[in-house]
Design a protein around this nucleic acid. Structure first.
Lengths: 137, 137, 137, 137
DNA sequence: GTGGTCTAGACCACA
DNA sequence: GTGGTCTAGACCACG
């Protein structure tokens, strides 16, 4: 999987990495248990400092998306907990997005069509769910 | 309309103000053409530096949500263009949200239910649309 | 409140800081809402790099112990959620400690006496509990 | 006795082994004088490098939990000294745990209940005590 | 002035 | 060779 950094973005580099890996997991571009590049390798590949990659990995680890291990390096978690609620922050964000869409005159159906498009990209229901391994908020 | 600042939020204060005004417009708590408080008045009301309120208003003006008028102060725009596309940033944000929801095991229907809830809060179709006055991206 | 760094300790500096602040909150040496030193000030005070202090603060923030804010700097959270369960890691740690105590011949009563001693140092029941603001594991 | 390695744990492998053996002794799953598997056997059994097992055994030996004997291999110590004090590190750890429990709103009685549970799993008073054979700190 | 991010380069424990 | 920690110094957005 390739990480592509947006140049002038206001979202920090470490978070861009984190975001793209999360999307990758959701869409099956990163398989459960798959090994991720080492901190140093990824840093060199995308031309940034390894501490920044480290920061991204730490965040992903702490959120429960990946597992780091001296023996095996960094790997995508095998199974994810089923937490059928968005975080309050995500809900607020969605609320905000709907408001802006509404002002643009985007109808409910148009909005939902976009949601469906993204759901179509991600893996089928239950693909990642398994034994209880809670994600942190 | 009351602006409520979140205490420990990562969202900058000026953006919190901007966000709440946008939601207010979408949900009819701020009517088209309605006069907003002056920078200084709002700053005093919520107990922050007026530079910060100014920044929020500048952003809202630049995005086309409000209009500043020498005679009448700041007012909500009367009519908004119909731009039936989210901004690329918003789309990417939605993509990201769907991905994270997917990993949590949230189904398409559960997600859409949330969207519907927020659509129910906002004003009916076409409420704000009128003569062509494009929003800036 | 003074932070004292253990020199040859194998526990990382940023975690020592985090630990001492947590104990400080529990024992009332840091009051709810109290302002903590700035990143730079604390770094200088204990003679370490400010990124290390930053790391400690980030951790505390993410665990819900403190609130960082550009306006007000860093402050101890006002109210903590009541989560009447230790984390699985903490339970395992306690299990381990009891096992080692047992081998040393320390009786249950001797062990509990130590627990009581530490409980006596901390603030009374409900001192920090309030509206729901969940701690992260 | 079976050693089970936690996959994504922050606890180093050699320490996980050491910990489980200590708990095993305390709870009678490893009897005084019982022979432990050889380094190579255990390494193969749990699928890790034998250097790592060696490290665990060295630590256990240094702490006085096991005895290596040219003729008989590695055995659990027969009798342990009565040292009715936790190590300073363990005390500090307990202090830390009580502080965090306190902030979560866990009462003294709830905490002690957990301690009792672990004491119930371990062997009765004096089970391992005998002639003076001091543990190293 | 504040927290937050990033760099380049070093060192360490673990495996 | 791996992840993790720390440093010294720089820059940025927010307020």
């Amino acid at each position: 999987m390739v990480i592509i950094l947006q140049d002038g973005s206001d979202v920090p580099v470490f978070k861009q990495i984190r975001n793209q890996i999360v999307v990758g997991i959701s869409e099956g571009k990163l398989l459960p248990g798959e090994k991720l590049p080492t901190v140093r390798a990824l840093a060199e590949e995308i031309g940034i400092n390894s501490m920044t990659v480290n920061k991204a990995y730490q965040l992903l680890k702490q959120e429960g998306y990946i597992i780091t291990d001296k023996r095996n390096g960094v790997r995508v978690r095998e199974k994810f907990a089923s937490i059928p609620e968005l975080s309050p922050e995500a809900k607020e964000q969605l609320h905000q997005m709907v408001s802006e869409a509404r002002i643009r005159g985007i109808t409910r159906d148009e909005f939902v069509a976009l949601v469906d498009e993204y759901y179509a990209s991600s893996m089928p229901d239950g693909y990642l769910q398994g034994e209880y391994t809670p994600l942190l908020e």
